[in-house]
Amino acid sequence: MIASAPRILVQPLAPVYRAAAEQWAARLGLPLDGEAEFALQLGDEGLQLVELGPQAPGPVRVDFVGGAVAHRRRFGGGSGQMIAKAVGVQPGVRPRVLDATAGLGRDAFVLASLGCELTLIERQPIIAALLEDGLARAASDAEVGPIVARMRLLSGDAIRLMQAWAGEAPQVIYLDPMFPHRDKSALVKKEMRLFRPLVGDDLDAPALLEAALALASHRVVVKRSRKAPAIAGAKPGYSLDGKSSRYDIYPLRKLQA
């Protein structure tokens, strides 16, 4: 996916986090010292990824309790949000959803906050670590804990995991392959600057879509930049367009209460 992986170290921000940093370093196969372009830091606010250098943006972490995620949960429009419509949320219907490209888990959290049961897959180990940490911290919050209890995280390659799926199939599979997002917000630009060297573009998106269509029982939903072409392969049945992105829907069966 990428020509050469950037060098990343694990960095405790206080001596009390040294043992936890050693555990993460061992899990992820990362050094604790030396020269690096990025650092996975442990501190009072949890696990965070930061680019090192004088012109680098600030750190990125997963926070389901406060900030923009909390604002969206309280004032984001509930089941009227476009993503809710795309996956089929409606009165009496809360689909079981597999988010096969979980990233920082924001879209999955929106769906979980609306009552959907979510399985999340993230294949980039460092992003999966940020997500795991964010879920663990949110679990102890009285208001958010019941929401993240509906979110189960799997770390690994989504295509292989879907092809080897055991048990009941997800009703809806949600895909948001990495692409040049047109969202110009400072937050998204900072995250893209951090993650693109780690992730690159999802060149296997057609295979991801094929595996999703083979597994989902009711529909597959793909988030795309509004003007981007559909993923190569099967054609979507219809799309929902927003200001900067759209949702391509591949219906298989009707979702019913």
Rank of each mutant, 00 (worst) to 15 (best):
A5Y: 10
A5H: 11
I8F: 03
L9A: 09
L13N: 06
P15G: 11
Y17F: 15
R18Q: 15
W24D: 02
A25F: 05
A26R: 15
L28K: 10
L30V: 11
L32C: 09
L32M: 15
G34E: 03
E35L: 11
E35R: 10
A36I: 11
F38G: 02
L42H: 02
G43Q: 10
L47A: 06
Q48K: 13
Q48P: 06
L49W: 05
V50F: 02
L52H: 03
G53Y: 06
G58P: 09
G58C: 12
R61E: 04
R61D: 10
D63E: 13
F64T: 11
F64I: 10
F64H: 07
V69T: 15
A70G: 04
R74P: 01
G76V: 12
Q81V: 04
A84Y: 01
K85G: 12
K85T: 09
A86D: 09
G88V: 12
R94N: 08
R94T: 11
R94L: 14
V97W: 01
V97F: 06
V97C: 13
T101W: 08
L104P: 03
R106V: 08
A108F: 01
V110S: 04
A112Y: 09
S113D: 05
L114G: 08
L114K: 05
L120H: 04
E122C: 14
I126Q: 05
I127E: 01
L131A: 13
G134D: 12
A136S: 15
R137D: 08
R137V: 02
A139G: 07
G145Q: 04
G145N: 05
P146S: 11
I147A: 11
V148S: 10
A149N: 14
A149D: 14
R152A: 14
L154D: 04
L154F: 12
I159L: 01
A164K: 12
W165N: 07
A166S: 15
E168Q: 14
I173E: 07
Y174Q: 06
D176R: 12
P177A: 12
F179N: 04
S185L: 08
A186S: 14
A186M: 10
L187F: 14
K189I: 01
K189G: 00
L194Y: 02
P197F: 02
P197H: 04
D202G: 08
D202M: 15
D202I: 06
L203Y: 04
A205K: 06
P206W: 00
L208A: 09
L209I: 05
A211N: 01
S217R: 02
V220R: 04
V220E: 12
V221G: 06
V222S: 05
S225W: 00
R226Y: 04
P229A: 11
A230D: 11
I231V: 15
K235C: 06
P236D: 07
P236K: 07
G237C: 12
Y238W: 11
K243Q: 09
K243L: 09
S245T: 13
R246V: 05
L252S: 09
L252G: 12
R253I: 00
K254R: 09
